[in-house]
Design a protein around this nucleic acid. Structure first.
Lengths: 115, 115
DNA sequence: AATATATTTGAACAGTTGTTCAAATGTTCA
DNA sequence: TGAACATTTGAACAACTGTTCAAATATATT
């Protein structure tokens, strides 16, 4: 699985950058999975409209001009990732952002994109 | 493309959450693309080892126990996203993190994952 | 120029992803 | 209970992604 044998490199930089230790394999996988959820424009748009106000599936679909089914599928992804929560009120189910992390992650990302 | 006609919803939440205005379609797409790059554990690992010290392809491959080719492909993705920079030094090409944004985005993500 | 080292590149492949469509599940109200 | 509303679910399909493999490029050394 590794074709790195018989290499003559002698480099050792010594420059220390990052604050913490290298996290566990499992943690890095979780981190990648979290970012993967943010890595789709439909989901990003959903999170943005939810950041403005709680909404039901119908209204999100209307706002983004997409089918209810497509939005529902993506909401289930967001819910599984604990980025949104839902609350039934009669026939309608309202979705909201799960916590402040979402906003903070967004702001960092926007900083980078809008530099 | 939209099956949301003839809906009887009357909801208007009024709850205002997010600091800024809804960004442009294009900006949201860029944001999603940025997160997409973070959404792979190999790339996350590469960024982590680069956060500790600048490294060449061979040593990254060695550290992550993967092929040089696989790492090289992913480095080109990271470079295209302006998350890493490279600097040739003789035969060897050293890679480094492009800026502090990477660290900040990571820290936000880790906060969420390790809650 | 020829050789060894260091890395990139492109095609190919299996695995994953997002949307659509049709059908199913819940909920409310007459 | 039956009809209307609100949303979810699963299968299907095309598009995309990450890794491998083999070959190409680039640099340094002799």
């Amino acid at each position: 699985m590794n074709n790195t044998k018989n290499h003559t490199h002698m480099h050792e930089s010594g420059i220390e950058h990052f604050s913490g230790e290298m996290p566990q394999e499992e943690t890095l996988q979780s981190l990648a999975n979290l970012f993967k959820v943010f890595g789709d424009s439909t989901r990003v748009k959903i999170l943005f409209v939810l950041a403005k106000s709680d909404m039901c599936v119908y209204h999100i679909a209307e706002t983004l001009d997409m089918t209810i089914s497509a939005i529902s599928h993506q909401l289930s992804v967001l819910k599984k990732a604990n980025l949104v929560t839902s609350q039934r009120q009669g026939k309608t189910i309202y979705y909201s952002l799960a916590d402040e992390h979402v906003r903070l992650i967004f702001e960092q990302g926007l900083d980078h994109v809008c530099e």
